[in-house]
Design a protein around this nucleic acid. Structure first.
Lengths: 201, 201
DNA sequence: CACTTCAGATGACAGATGTCATGACGGCTT
DNA sequence: AAGCCGTCATGACATCTGTCATCTGAAGTG
C-alpha cells in the first residue's frame, strides 16, 4: 500500500484527485494540504511514501516544497503536477530532487502509474515537457540579469527597479540591455515575457 | 437524474471531476470534452441538462462556449469553473447567460450543490468573486483603448502595435496614454498588467 | 442647421530608455 | 602571473515613449 500526500491549493482539484487515486487498490491518500507550508508540515507528521505537489501554490511553489522535503523527509519521494509546464521549471524541479513531473493533461491511469514508478525508485517526466526542456536549453541569463528582469516584468520603471535591486539605474539598464540581447527581444518587456515563458525567471 | 457535460482541457482534472460527481446519486456525467469546439459538438449531440465548463481552454474560452450553447442548446444551463477568476470575466460570463461561476478552490459538495441549483433554474456566483467584481467596477477603457492595450501587453514596440492595429503611431500613443491615466499606471506595460488582472483585456 | 461627441491624426516637447564605450574589482582558471 | 568572466558603475548619445494642445471628419442630437 502506497501512502500519498496531496498538495494543491484548489480544493476541488485536490478532492477530485483524492477520489481518483482512491479507486486504485494499492494507493491510499493519507493527507491533503492547500499550501506549501501545510504540505511540509503534513509530510513531517505523516511521513508519506509519495508527495504529489502542485507547482503553483499561494505561498511556496512546488519546487521549493520538493527541495525542503528532500532534506526534512528523505524517505518521501516527491512528484509535481502542473497546469502550465515551463521548460525552466522542469530543470529546477529535477535539481530539487523531484522524481516525477507531469502536466495535468495526463490521464488518471497515467497518474497512478507514475505514482507507482516514483515509489519504486524510478523517475518519470512527461515526454512532451522533456522535449521542450531539451530544445529550450539552459537559461542564457546570469543571476543578476534574471533578478533585474524579474523586477522589470512587473512593469516598473527603471528607477524603481534600481531602488528595489539596490543598483544604480545605469547598471540596471546595462543588465536589461544584455538580457534583451541574449533573448532576441526588442525591449525589456518582451525580454521579460520570453524569460517567463521559458521559466527562467 | 441530472445529466452533465464536462469540458476541461486538463485530462486529469476532467476525469477527477467526473469521478467526484459520480459519487452523487442524482448526478450523471454523460459526456466529456477537452476543447471548446468539442464541448459545443457534444452538447448538441447529447443535450445535457448542465454543462460544467472550464474558463481557460486551448481554442474557445468558457464564455464563448456559454454564449454559443445558449443559442444552440437552449435547454442546457451552463456553469463555469476556473482557476484564475478575474472580475471582468465574471461580468462577461453573466452577460453570456452563464448560471454559475465558481473558482476551483470550492469543495466538491459545493460543486454538486451548485449543479443542482443551476439545474433548478437558479444562479450561483462565488461570493468572493462577486465581491471582487463589484469593487473592481466596470472597465473604464473604451473599446479601442482595450484593443491597443491588448496588443501592447505582449511587449511590442509602439510602431508594431500601430501596424497591427492599422493606426498611426501617434494615435496608439494617445490611446495608451489615456489608458494608463485611467488605470493609474506609470506606463503602458503596467497598465496592461492591471487591465489583464482585472479581466478587461 | 448648429452643436456635441468620438475615433483618429499630427506635431512638439521633456523625460525615459536602449546602446555603447570604458573602467574597476574580485573570483576562477590555465 | 595572465586572462576571462561576472558584477557594478559612469557618461554620452540616439531613439522611444508619455503628455499635451490642436485639428479633421463622421455620426448623432437638439
Amino acid at each position: 500500500m502506497i501512502r500519498i500526500l496531496l498538495a494543491d491549493d484548489e480544493h476541488l482539484i485536490r478532492g477530485a484527485l483524492a477520489a481518483l487515486l482512491a479507486l486504485e487498490d494499492d494507493l491510499i491518500v493519507v493527507g491533503q494540504a492547500a499550501t506549501g507550508a501545510e504540505a511540509i508540515a503534513a509530510a513531517r507528521a505523516l511521513i508519506p511514501d509519495v508527495a504529489v505537489v502542485d507547482l503553483q501554490m499561494p505561498d511556496l511553489d512546488g519546487v521549493t516544497v520538493a527541495d525542503r522535503l528532500r532534506v526534512e523527509v528523505p524517505t518521501c519521494r516527491t512528484m509535481i503536477v502542473t497546469s502550465h509546464g515551463r521548460p525552466g521549471h522542469l530543470k529546477q524541479a529535477l535539481a530539487a530532487g523531484v522524481r516525477g513531473f507531469l502536466p495535468k493533461t495526463v490521464s488518471a491511469e497515467n497518474l497512478a502509474m507514475v505514482v507507482r514508478t516514483v515509489h519504486g525508485g524510478g523517475r518519470y517526466v512527461d515526454p512532451q515537457l522533456a522535449a521542450e526542456a531539451i530544445s529550450a536549453g539552459d537559461s542564457p541569463l546570469t543571476a543578476r540579469e534574471a533578478d533585474v528582469l524579474q523586477l522589470a516584468s512587473e512593469g516598473a520603471p527603471i528607477e524603481e527597479i534600481a531602488r528595489r535591486a539596490s543598483l544604480s539605474p545605469g547598471t540596471v539598464r546595462n543588465y536589461l540591455s544584455a538580457a534583451a540581447g541574449k533573448l532576441g527581444a526588442a525591449n525589456r518587456h518582451e525580454a521579460a515575457r520570453i524569460a517567463r515563458k521559458s521559466g527562467w525567471i
